[in-house]
């Protein structure tokens, strides 16, 4: 009997689904998040899976022996990609990983594994770009604030980077697309959510007195280090894709 699994949309939730499909030998048609419109075929029964940390632990321990922490991290990246059908890709790969093979996640001749590597590459690239392209604005109260709309849900992957680097300043990075942010108060990180949409005018009147000065100095520097004789627009746009420009003061300011 084919089944549609419904889970809570979290990583442990998805791993619990994997556990159940092994334990009860279910044939899975789709895995869906409970906040989406559930769609099901005629001869498919749906099953709601309750996240269970004990089951999660068992799966992850077993996986670690087969593919190591690095291999698990790759699957987590695929999860954060939020791509359509990523759940089934993760399930299929884990089934493959548990077959008797040494380091199965390095079989670059397997299509699913190539697919995973491709997604991991995209998500890693986005994570790296967020590290690079976050532009903090200093507010009157000393908070350094940045907002952006990453292609994938990468905030969980950059928390430690910013915490280690900016340990002596309060900061907030907000994902406008997913409507949540991470906030550091000099002690710890908390996840925050604005109750209403962000008002740009509201942000600009609260800027620190020096903020525009340094923002323009940066823009000024950016223009001065360019070598006009070497203009290479293709390379420029490839390295700095246009969709990021609205968050980069050096490209935005006149």
């Amino acid at each position: 009997m084919l089944k549609t699994l419904i889970y809570d949309g979290t990583w442990p939730g998805l791993i619990t689904c994997v556990f159940c499909s092994f334990e009860y030998k279910w044939q899975i048609e789709t895995i869906q998040q409970n906040n989406q419109n559930i769609q099901s075929g005629l001869f498919v029964t749906s099953e709601t899976v309750i996240t269970d940390d004990v089951k999660v632990k068992r799966v992850l321990l077993g996986l670690e022996k087969k593919i190591g922490i690095q291999g698990i991290k790759e699957l987590y990246y695929v999860f954060l990609s939020e791509l359509k059908n990523m759940e089934l890709l993760i399930l299929r790969s884990i089934v493959y990983y548990f077959k008797p093979n040494n380091k199965p996640n390095l079989n670059y001749a397997n299509d699913d594994i190539l697919q995973i590597k491709k997604i991991v590459k995209s998500v890693s690239r986005e994570r790296h770009r967020v590290k690079a392209f976050v532009r903090f604005q200093k507010m009157k109260d000393g908070l350094y604030f940045a907002n952006l709309e990453p292609d994938f849900n990468v905030l969980p992957l950059i928390v430690n980077f910013f915490k280690d680097r900016y340990a002596d300043q309060k900061w907030l990075i907000y994902d406008l697309k997913r409507n949540y942010g991470i906030y550091y108060d000099l002690e710890q990180i908390t996840e925050v959510k604005f109750s209403h949409t962000l008002d740009k005018n509201h942000v600009s009147i609260q800027l620190d007195d020096d903020e525009l000065h340094y923002s323009y100095l940066w823009k000024n520097y950016f223009d001065a280090v360019n070598i006009k004789e070497r203009k290479n627009t293709k390379l420029h746009v490839k390295s700095l894709p246009k969709r990021y420009w609205k968050y980069l003061n050096e490209k935005k300011l006149l």
Partner: peptide, 12 residues
């Protein structure tokens, strides 16, 4: 980390 790229395509 390259934080930006100038119009000549070089990293900043």
């Amino acid at each position: 980390i390259c934080h930006s790229y100038t119009e000549d395509g070089r990293c900043v």
